[in-house]
Write a protein that binds this DNA or RNA. Structure first.
Lengths: 249, 249
DNA sequence: GCAGTTATCGACGACCAGTCGATAACCAGA
DNA sequence: TCTGGTTATCGACTGGTCGTCGATAACTGC
């Protein structure tokens, strides 16, 4: 192990970086914006007009401003493609800085996962379109990996958080909810089981309303809503719990 | 969307995201290196010599090199403080870019969690020391938040992955293992339960050896090891599983 | 031996999720 | 209005897992 180099002043520090090469690097933010449309999970992509990778579809994003926080930046970038007020959830995924991930100088990318609830159809620019995640065209740069990271995050968080709230309209029936889950998870979801799990965790509650039957008949469906419109981790979901303390009294 | 900045000649151009100013930003990496020492979780810190925050303890790290991948960079930075060959695990935590997180120009930090197994005592430089995470001094910048993020990640991953392998010596008894878990989780861990859970998940296996009793007597303890020295997620841990397919035959 | 100590094993009970059949509540057409 | 078709909801069974705890095993020192 090399000793502490005293020629190399500690940082992070003010402008006098003096840290080997003080060459700054370019930083961008990228957003994987997902929405379930017609029972199919879609991702928002825009078509590049200029080189490199002209004509390829790519994720919305752009260069981080000099005094901009990361979250602030991704919101600004996304605002160019979609009404960000429609975003029901936004969380950081990861950062990538492989030297050759884009042509030219190295660009570090910090990626975000955004969700749009299923009942809105935001206006998007002409170069922008929703693509089913299961049939994506060839994407620019490493953006296909980023989309996969977003899907994966969504899948797992549906299981141990109340993230479902960000996928669905304000109210919904259990059948509808199961269809949203199916679209994200990629497999069948039993309605009975889903109802019991979410109810037990206090994620959903009935509004009291029922939906009128369609013309094909059938019992009217009860209407539900999510209790909390913000992310909450299902506590005590993991194993190796702390021991139970004897209840007082 | 603003046009491509033509003041930046069309080199093998970076993606023409061309969002606002193309001003680059400084990027650093930070590492939360944790180790259980004498049944207490510790974090590796070094004392800053120069301003800003001279004298404060801070996380190891430094500026990202111009052609360096993030993981490569954190390994290089950590190598100045500890023998990185001792690192049993290294994973990315998150990135932070708040404009005022450090004095002076804005610096984006990408943070990593590193783990050192309990049986080694790496040589560290004079300005560097292990601190119990439960009694930290005031840390520089936002480093206290970063330490907390690292602890939190470790805690949760102990529950749904085999990350324990990175905490412990190559072989161990169940009592020892439980002490490592206790140190990280911050609460009691039942040995019987721990043994059954890890065995059921095929994380650990007995070596066949037993340890001789200490001078206080007691039955000799069986020696175990982790099966796989690399991170694996306990699959089917989450809820909302895909339906069971009928076994063929 | 015997008491003390530590480790391991087995069993009980609670809880929870995956499954499935029974029932409820509606529609449409005869 | 009766009847069959359709969709939603409910209850019950089952298997698996985990938190807990008492019983037993295997050692030390006196």
């Amino acid at each position: 192990m090399s000793p502490v180099s005293l020629t190399r002043p500690p940082e992070p520090g003010p402008p006098d970086v003096a840290h080997g090469t003080a060459q700054p690097s370019r930083h961008e933010v990228l957003g994987v914006v997902l929405q379930v449309r017609d029972d199919v999970l879609h991702v928002l992509l825009w078509r590049r007009a200029l080189a490199p990778h002209a004509g390829r579809w790519s994720l919305p994003g752009g260069t981080l401003g000099p005094a901009e926080d990361l979250r602030e930046s991704i919101r600004r970038q996304l605002a160019e493609k979609v009404d960000v007020r429609e975003l029901s959830h936004l969380e950081q995924l990861d950062s990538r800085g492989a030297p050759r991930r884009v042509p030219g100088e190295r660009v570090v990318a910090t990626t975000y996962l955004g969700l749009v609830p299923g009942h809105v159809d935001p206006h998007v620019p002409a170069d922008t379109r929703w693509h089913p995640v299961d049939a994506l065209p060839r994407l620019a740069f490493d953006h296909a990996d980023v989309v996969e990271a977003g899907r994966s995050r969504l899948r797992s968080k549906l299981s141990y958080t109340n993230l479902g709230f960000a996928l669905v309209p304000p109210t919904f029936t259990m059948s509808e909810l199961a269809r949203y889950y199916r679209a994200c998870l990629g497999h069948e979801v039993d309605v009975t089981n889903l109802q019991r799990i979410l109810a037990r965790r206090d994620q959903i509650e009935p509004t009291g309303d029922v939906l009128r039957s369609g013309r094909s008949g059938g019992r009217p469906a009860a209407v539900y809503r999510f209790r909390h419109p913000t992310l909450e981790v299902t506590d005590a979901f993991a194993v190796l719990h702390p021991p139970r303390v004897a209840a007082p009294g």
